[in-house]
Design a protein around this nucleic acid. Structure first.
Lengths: 336, 336
DNA sequence: ATGAAAGCGCTAACAG
DNA sequence: CTGTTAGCGCTTTCAT
C-alpha cells in the first residue's frame, strides 16, 4: 500500500542507496542521467512519498519549527501566526503551530522534535522549560511577554501603556479607569505599573474595572458585560476615559458604551493596546498602540535562522516600542 | 546531550526493553514496582524526552492530525481552528495546523506523515490529492467548500445565500447588489447561482460589484475601497441592498458606507455570509447566516476518529444549513 | 520479571 | 557509477 524506497529499488533492480541519492537530489555526478530519469519516473508512477520520520531520525534534524501560541482565535494571535507563516514559507522549514496553555502542557506542545521554537507571548512557558531542552533546541521568544533567557524580540508594553495613558491625560481626562482581567491587576504587570505610574505623575486616582475572564477568546464579550453593568441605570461611574488591557476588550467596551448611550470620545475616551485592525473598523475607530507585527515576525525568524546555523552566537535581543495610533475614540476627528 | 532510552538503560544496567515498557506505560505486571520507580526517576533526572519520530517510525502511526486551512488570519478561519483544537485537545492525537494555497503546494502541506487529515474549506485541494494518498490516510473535508469524495461535513452555501437574499427581497429591497471577489463571480459558484436564482424569482436585475482581491487576508480592505469608490461623489449607484460574499467583505463595506454618509439599513441594507462575531460588534450589527462552527468541528472530528478506528466504514456525510441571523444592518432594531 | 534481537524507512560512509 | 553496510531511537515478539 505505502510505497517505500525499497519497493522502488527492488522493482528497478538497483540499490536503495541509488534511489535515495536520486530522490533526495544528492546525486550530483554520482548517478547516471539515465538511472535518474528511471528512478524519478518510477517514484512518480508508484506514488512514492518519502517518509520524513525516517529521514529525520537519521539526520537528527526534522526541518520543523514549532510556533507556540496561547490560542488561534483572537485577531492579535492570528495576525502574528499569519506573519510568521509568511516568513517561514519558502524556506526549507515547516511550521507547526501549537497551543500552549492550561490544557496543553508545555511538554506536549513540543511533543514533536523540532529544530527550533518560536514562542509568541509566552515567557512563563519558556522559563518553565527544562534547561536541557533550552540548551538543545534554539528558542526565540517574542511578543509582549518575552523571556530574556533566550533570543528575543520584545515589545515594551510598559512604554506602550505610558504613551496611551499619557495621551489620555494630555487630552484633559481626569477620571481614567483601567479595564483589566482580574489576573493581571497586580503590580509586576507592565500595564498595571505603567498605568499607576502615569496616574501618580498626574496626581490622579487609579480606578480598576476588573473583568473575570482570563481566557483571551471571551475577553471581548466579558469586557462588554462588565462595562454594560458599570453604566447600567444611572450609576454613571464618573469615568471620562477607559484604558483597556487589549483591543479585544476595548472592542467589547466600545459596544457596551454605545449601547448605553455613552458618547465616544466626548463622554468617555477609549483606548487599547495591540492595534488589531478590527479597532480601525469600529466607529469611532479605536486609539491604540500598534504592535509591529511584521517587524516582529521578521526579526524573530531572522534570529532563529541565524541561531539554527550557529548555536554559539551571542544572545540576540531587540525590544520595540509600539507607536501610539491616535484615532477617533480619544480625539474627535473628521472622517477621511 | 540528548538523552535516549539507551542512556537510561545503560546507567541503570537494565535492558532497553524494560525502560521502554516502563516509560510507555505498558508495564502492566511485567516490570516490578521497584524497577519502575527507578526508571521513572532516572528518566526525570536525566531529562529524558522520548523521540516521537522513532516511535512513529516503528508503530506506523504518528498520532498526528493535519488541519489544512487557507490561512490563519481572518476570523472565519481562526474560529474554526480554535474549535477544532478544542476537539482534538485531550485526545491522544496532536494537531498540526498547516496552510495550503498558492505558495504552499498540497504535497508540502502533508509533508509529515499524519494519521488523518481535516481539510477546512478546501475541496479543490482534496480533489487534487493523489488517490493512493486518499486511500492510505483518512481525510475529512468540511466547511463551505467540501469534497464529496471523502467523509465530509458541509455547509450549504447555496441555501444560506438564498435565505440572505430572500430576506432582502422580503424587506422590500429592489436594487440588490452582490459584492464579490472577481474570481468567484461566475456560475458554478454557490453564492453566485443562488443570488441569480433568487433575483430572477423576484424579477429583479442582478448587479455585481466585483472586488479584485482574492486573498482572504485583504478582503476587508479591498471591499472597503471598492465600495468607497462606488459611492464616491454623487454617483450613487442606486443600490438599496448589498449582499456580501463574506462577513469580512461586509465589514469593509460597512465602514465605507458609513464614511460615505450612507445610512444602514435605511439607505442600503447590508448582509453577509459567515457570522463571525465581529459582525455583531459593528454598528449596526450585520445580518448574516451563521456558520455552525462548533457543530462542524465536533462532527468533523467525530467522523475522523471513527474512520481512524475503522477504515472500512461507509462514507460519512452531513450537510448543514446555516441559520439566518437578522440584525440591524437589514432591519431597524432597538438596542437591547 | 527481564534481556536479546529484529526491524520501521531512510541516509551516508565506504567499497567495489 | 552502483552496491553494501551500519545505524538513527524506539517497539515488540520471543526466549530466558
Amino acid at each position: 500500500m505505502i510505497v517505500t524506497m525499497n519497493d522502488i529499488a527492488k522493482k528497478l533492480r538497483v540499490s536503495r542507496a541509488t534511489v535515495s541519492y536520486v530522490l533526495s537530489g544528492r546525486s550530483d555526478g554520482l548517478v547516471s542521467e539515465a538511472t535518474k530519469k528511471i528512478v524519478h519516473s518510477a517514484a512518480k508512477e508508484m506514488g512514492y512519498r518519502p517518509n520524513r520520520m525516517a529521514a529525520a531520525l537519521i539526520k537528527g534534524r526534522t526541518q520543523m519549527i514549532a510556533l507556540l501560541v496561547h490560542d488561534f482565535h483572537p485577531a492579535y494571535y492570528s495576525y502574528m501566526i499569519h506573519h510568521v507563516c509568511k516568513q517561514v514559507e519558502g524556506t526549507d522549514y515547516h511550521l507547526n503551530v501549537a497551543q500552549v496553555g492550561a490544557k496543553t502542557s508545555p511538554m506536549e506542545a513540543t511533543y514533536w522534535p523540532v529544530d527550533g521554537v518560536m514562542a509568541f507571548d509566552c515567557a512563563p512557558f519558556i522559563d518553565q522549560l527544562p534547561d536541557n531542552l533550552l540548551a538543545s533546541v534554539p528558542v526565540v521568544s517574542f511578543g509582549g511577554s518575552y523571556s530574556t533567557k533566550v533570543d528575543h524580540v520584545g515589545v515594551d508594553i510598559y512604554e506602550a501603556t505610558l504613551s496611551v495613558v499619557r495621551h489620555m491625560v494630555d487630552i484633559g481626562r481626569r477620571r481614567i479607569a483601567y479595564l483589566v482581567p482580574k489576573s493581571d491587576c497586580c503590580s509586576g504587570s507592565a500595564r498595571h505599573d505603567a498605568y499607576c505610574t502615569c496616574l501618580r505623575e498626574a496626581r490622579l486616582d487609579p480606578m480598576f474595572v476588573q473583568v473575570d475572564e482570563p481566557r483571551t477568546v471571551l475577553q471581548r464579550e466579558a469586557a462588554r458585560n462588565v462595562v454594560r453593568a458599570l453604566f447600567r441605570g444611572r450609576q454613571n461611574p464618573e469615568i471620562d476615559a477607559l484604558f483597556c488591557f487589549s483591543d479585544e476588550m476595548a472592542l467589547g467596551a466600545h459596544l457596551a458604551l454605545r449601547q448605553a448611550g455613552v458618547s465616544i470620545p466626548s463622554d468617555v475616551a477609549l483606548a487599547g493596546i495591540d492595534g488589531i485592525c478590527d479597532g480601525e473598523y469600529a466607529d469611532p475607530p479605536i486609539t491604540a498602540t500598534r504592535q509591529p507585527f511584521e517587524r516582529m515576525a521578521e526579526t524573530a525568524w531572522q534570529f532563529l535562522s541565524r541561531r539554527l546555523e550557529d548555536k554559539t552566537l551571542p544572545r540576540q535581543e531587540l525590544v520595540l516600542v509600539p507607536p501610539l495610533i491616535v484615532r477617533g475614540s480619544t480625539v474627535t476627528q473628521t472622517l477621511r
